Computed example of a mutant assay.
Amino acid sequence: MSNSRYSEDWQAIATAVKEQARWRCAKCDRQCLRPDDDITGLTKSERTKITLTVHHHNRMPEDNRAENLIALCTTCHLACHTRQQSNIPPGQLSFEF
């Protein structure tokens, strides 16, 4: 059994949220990378800025109700965790590339 607070189907849930958002940040409207986009020539920093993530409004990763989830670019997602109390310290957020 995993110690993760995220459900086993989290990747599928997150992908569905991102697809529904048309791979755009709900806060700043930045167009983010889709899974099949060519990232040749992009630095890690450039990729990070245009990576779409999914944020839990109530900071509870176990709560995957649609109204609790929002697609945010990395910058906006980190701002949420920096400005407000969070269940995960900003330095421990992980992003897949």
Results as ranks from 00 to 15, higher is better:
Leu52Thr: 09
Asp38Ala: 11
Thr43Gly: 12
Cys25Lys: 03
Gln92Thr: 03
Gly91Arg: 04
Thr82Ser: 08
Arg47Val: 09
His77Asp: 13
Asp37Tyr: 08
Phe97Glu: 13
Ile13Asp: 01
Ile88Asn: 13
Asp37His: 08
Ala12Asn: 03
Pro61Asn: 12
Arg24Phe: 01
Thr74Trp: 11
Ser4Thr: 15
Asp63Glu: 07
Arg65Asp: 11
Arg5Phe: 00
Asn58Glu: 04
Asp29Arg: 07
Gly41Ala: 12
Arg47Thr: 05
Ser45Asp: 14
Val54Ala: 11
Asp37Asn: 10
Ala14Gln: 07
His55Gln: 09
Leu72Phe: 09
Asn68Asp: 04
Gly41Gln: 12
Ala66Leu: 08
Ser86Cys: 13
Phe95Glu: 01
Pro89Val: 14
Pro35Met: 06
Ala14Ile: 09
Asp63Gly: 10
Cys25Leu: 02
Asn87Met: 01
Asp63Lys: 04
Ile50Met: 12
Arg59Asn: 15
Arg22Ala: 13
Asp38Gly: 02
Thr15Cys: 01
Arg24Ser: 10
Ala71Gln: 12
Ala12Val: 08
Thr82Phe: 06
Gln84Ile: 00
Ala79Thr: 11
Arg34Tyr: 01
Gly91Trp: 05
Asn87Ile: 03
Thr40Gly: 13
Ala16Phe: 01
Phe95Gly: 01
Ser4Asn: 14
Arg47Gly: 04
Cys73Ser: 13
Ile50Val: 15
Thr82Leu: 10
Thr48Met: 05
His57Pro: 00
Ile39Cys: 10
Asn3Cys: 01
His81Met: 02
Asn68Thr: 10
Phe97Ala: 07
Ala12Trp: 00
Arg24Cys: 15
Cys76Asp: 12
Asp63Met: 04
Asp29His: 12
Cys80Thr: 11
Asp9Cys: 02
Asn58His: 04
Thr82Glu: 15
Trp10Leu: 07
Ala16Tyr: 00
Asn58Val: 05
His81Leu: 05
Pro61Val: 07
Ile13Gly: 01
Leu69Ile: 11
Ala16Lys: 13
Asp37Met: 05
Leu33Cys: 03
Ala21Asn: 14
Ala66Thr: 13
Arg5Asn: 14
Gln11Glu: 14
Gly91Ile: 03
Ala14Leu: 04
Leu33Thr: 03
Cys73Asn: 13
Gly91Phe: 04
Phe95Ser: 01
Ala66Lys: 14
Ile50Thr: 14
Ala66Ile: 12
Thr51Glu: 02
